[in-house]
């Protein structure tokens, strides 16, 4: 009647006996494993958050040489109407002078070069850069001194990347859909 603690029921074929213990254990592990995805996924953006992921903007609200800041996905979005001088400055920069080389033409839509749309979040640590400040006529991040040019590209300071350009498309001459 008394067994040592190590003998877990000396009954039946040992292979079959082990199999049933392993199966029960595996089922328990499986049950726990299936509980985890919902518990993790609930922290991902909810359906209503995702539904707000795109926005439309009327470009006629921006005057030449100015920028309008709108909120998009909880972050500032810079919509800048660039002057011909600013566009030229942006286009004339040699790629070799850039920390994160990218052509200005890759950052705007052809024929609509005056409109630059950027996520207004410094690529260093996420502060909001100041409009029209810094050494390159674009933006300057007050947190750790990153300078961006008139195409929003990083020119000086600790930021590693250019200001991000979101996905956007022109719905009409003056209307863009962002995201």
């Amino acid at each position: 009647m008394s067994e040592p603690a190590t003998d877990h029921g000396g009954h039946g074929d040992p292979n079959r006996r082990d199999f049933i213990y392993i199966a029960a254990g595996a089922a328990a592990v499986g049950a726990v494993a299936m509980v985890i995805p919902p518990l993790v996924d609930q922290m991902n953006p909810a359906a209503d958050t995702l539904a707000l992921a795109s926005t439309e903007f009327d470009l006629s609200k921006v005057q030449e040489g100015m920028q309008v800041v709108i909120k998009w996905r909880g972050k500032p979005l810079f919509v800048r109407y660039r002057t011909p001088k600013e566009i030229k400055e942006a286009q004339d920069v040699k790629l070799t002078d850039l920390k994160d080389p990218q052509l200005d033409s890759d950052r705007v839509k052809k024929g609509k070069e005056q409109f630059l749309i950027l996520v207004g979040s410094c690529t260093h640590l996420g502060c909001v850069p100041t409009f029209g400040a810094g050494d390159y006529g674009g933006w300057f991040c007050p947190c750790h001194g990153s300078h961006y040019d008139t195409s929003g590209r990083i020119r000086k300071g600790p930021a590693p990347k250019n200001l991000a350009v979101p996905d956007f498309q022109f719905l009409s001459d003056t209307k863009v859909k962002i995201g």
Binding site: H11, G12, A23, A24, A27, M34
Partner: peptide, 19 residues
């Protein structure tokens, strides 16, 4: 799943507690 789980656990229980 739970019914299958119950099945194997019951089998394990029977083996284990035999006698």
């Amino acid at each position: 799943y739970l019914l299958l789980f119950a099945g194997v656990t019951y089998a394990a229980y029977r083996k284990l507690w035999h006698g």
